[in-house]
């Protein structure tokens, strides 16, 4: 093995960081005060916040990082985590139509930068998001159905503080069908990547399992449906689904995005 390959950052490492970034960052991206303050804070205030965040990233990369077993390249890892967080932030905000080409250049950058702060911290904590050795759930305690229960639990934990807010309603009202379909696709892709690609642990056990639910495609789709049902249930509980119509589906899909991340995290933890 060459010196470059030994200890090199792999796509799996990067996906762990990206998964951590999404899990910590999405709740803040679903906050309208961030949309507003990102466009109104002084650029120097935002730069100061970014500088402080970079130092925190550097510290976290020293003790945790997104590459398992390596905390010896904190500066490089912090640069990678910080830079990719801007790209994730921009991707999310474009997908959710919080920034577009009609906006002025400065506010657009401000919103992207502010939203990137928690994403970068999640990136630096990516390696500790789930146990490296995989979950401890045994076949006798539920098997594949236990995974779906864990998915429901994870979804509830991540979106319980988002469901009662205005943001899912605002986003659902403003997103067209193309973006909503995109949100479903991104939810499924991230869920798949987190559980079956990012090497958080337990991947081999899932793939080698005979349980029909542990087929990657089936588990990913079922877990998303669980997240969608949990989202609709929470919205209904908070009185945000008064009727069964198109807006019901749109609101549920918008909330199911963070819920699907929680569902993936829940499955990694069992």
């Amino acid at each position: 093995m060459s010196a470059a390959a030994a200890g090199a950052t792999t796509p799996e490492d990067t996906m762990r960081g990206i998964a951590g970034g999404f899990v910590l960052g999405v709740p803040l991206v679903y906050t309208q005060e961030v949309w507003f303050h990102g466009g109104n804070l002084s650029p120097f205030d935002i730069l100061g916040l970014l500088a402080a965040s970079f130092l925190l990233n550097l510290a976290l990369s020293t003790v945790v990082g997104f590459h398992a077993g390596r905390t010896k390249r904190p500066f490089e890892d912090a640069v990678v985590g910080f830079g990719l967080s801007f790209l994730i932030s921009a991707f999310l905000l474009v997908l959710l139509r919080r920034v577009d080409l009609e906006m002025a250049f400065g506010p657009r950058l401000g919103i992207i930068a502010l939203s990137a702060v928690p994403i970068s911290l999640g990136f630096a904590l990516g390696n500790s998001l789930a146990p490296r050795e995989g979950g401890k759930l045994e076949e006798g305690s539920g098997g594949g159905f236990g995974d779906l229960l864990a998915a429901a639990g994870g979804a509830v934990v991540l979106v319980l503080n988002i469901a009662p807010t205005e943001e899912p309603l605002l986003l659902a009202a403003e997103l067209g069908s193309i973006r909503l379909i995109g949100l479903v696709a991104v939810s499924l892709a991230l869920s798949y990547v987190m559980v079956f690609f990012a090497e958080f642990g337990g991947k081999g056990g899932r793939i080698n399992s005979n349980h029909p639910i542990h087929t990657p495609l089936v588990e990913t789709v079922l877990a998303y449906l669980v997240a969608l049902v949990v989202s609709a249930g929470l919205l209904r509980a908070f009185g945000e689904l008064p009727a069964i119509d198109g807006s019901t589906l749109a609101r549920s899909v918008v909330l199911a995005f963070p819920a699907s991340l929680g569902a993936a995290l829940g499955r990694l933890l069992v």
Partner: peptide
């Protein structure tokens, strides 16, 4: 990553 950081920082300074 360096490109993304540079774009944001330089963009905010220009702004």
């Amino acid at each position: 990553s360096a490109g993304a950081i540079g774009t944001i920082v330089i963009g905010l300074l220009i702004y």
